[in-house]
Write a protein that binds this DNA or RNA. Structure first.
Lengths: 115, 115, 115, 115
DNA sequence: GTGGTCTAGACCACC
DNA sequence: GTGGTCTAGACCACA
């Protein structure tokens, strides 16, 4: 697996997990891959994978059962959605709008990307 | 001045300068605030401000006259525009689209923000 | 059954058993629930329940008759009492006192809890 | 520095920091030792010290200034006090009371420890 | 100098 | 098998 330079790997892993939750591939209650398996399949150190899991657990998106594994929280899908929407509407979107204004990009120019 | 956690402060400062250039407040040839003044007004370490200036100088957006100060390059506005557009269309926009898909946000929901 | 995060589940189970012994519900010589039953009723892995029993057996508080079950040792009540008192006076109590000092909690504040 | 076996070292370090805050030695706004210095003086790996700092930062008790160090949050003393009191009154104290009942320990027996 | 990330690998506790 | 902790040490970004 190839990761970007600009962001810590563990955050990118956390994002991947969120995408799997949002897309419905990992529904609430579902067990997600073990830390070790995730580390192997993504070719990172187990500690790095664990860190991503830990991060999401702190957010309440996943939880662990001792000795068994990590699971998507019952409200994990909802929480992820809320967090990401919040981020989108308060950070990403305003930034995009601001950038477009500065660059003089009209909506018509980007319309075609919305498919 | 308050900076975000997710990005190095010096890059955020560089962005602010770019905004001033793009908005026309600092036209090509104009002298921009000294590193020291910038550092004081933004409450950052002078080294951090210097780093932002250095970064923009490497991009050819500003240049330095020793003993005098930093100036917007003659083609600084154009360069900034090109760089930011490139970034917008290859990184920011695709990411926004992807996020919107994952979150099920329709264009209609964000239309109103385009004013 | 719900267990705390801070302590291994098997120790929490062992504690529950000790409480039953101390309270007199399970007098010396009495047969205690089978590992299997305990595991089912507490919704834990049988291995985890077994570990608790094993732990208490090593302490000499319970013993096992093969094919029959686990029993409270003749001196099980006494042993439990001694162990718990030792723990109380050398660990728990000093810690409580220290915490109270740090937090500025006076004895008067907790007096009412002693009923 | 010598640490107990029963608890992760990083939590014990976090506790030590809390004690310094509660005792007033490190008032709100004060810079606390750098991760490296703490690691050296406690003879642990820098990662372990960092983990303690990170843990307390998540609780909002300390915060960091990038490139400068960690500081006690303005409301760090208050937060620590609230957290510890909460823990004391909902967990520690009830447990002590319960244990005392089971062991038949009277208040008179422990009175002398309150000095 | 500060903190942060990551790896490699050991060793442990738990289920 | 699961996750958790810790060390040693490298390397980086930032102020």
């Amino acid at each position: 697996m190839k990761f970007k330079e600009e962001q810590p790997i563990y955050l990118q892993i956390a994002d991947l997990i969120c995408e799997n939750i949002l897309s419905g591939r990992w529904p609430p209650g579902e067990r997600i891959p073990s830390v070790r398996d995730a580390a192997v399949s993504m070719e990172v150190n187990p500690n790095t994978a664990l860190r991503a899991y830990d991060y999401l657990q702190n957010l309440g998106i996943i939880y662990k059962n001792r000795g068994i594994g990590y699971f998507v929280a019952e409200d994990g899908l909802e929480k992820t959605r809320v967090l990401k929407r919040e981020d989108f509407f308060s950070n990403i979107l305003p930034n995009v709008i601001k950038t477009m204004k500065l660059l003089g990009i009209q909506y018509a120019e980007i319309e075609k990307y919305f498919d």
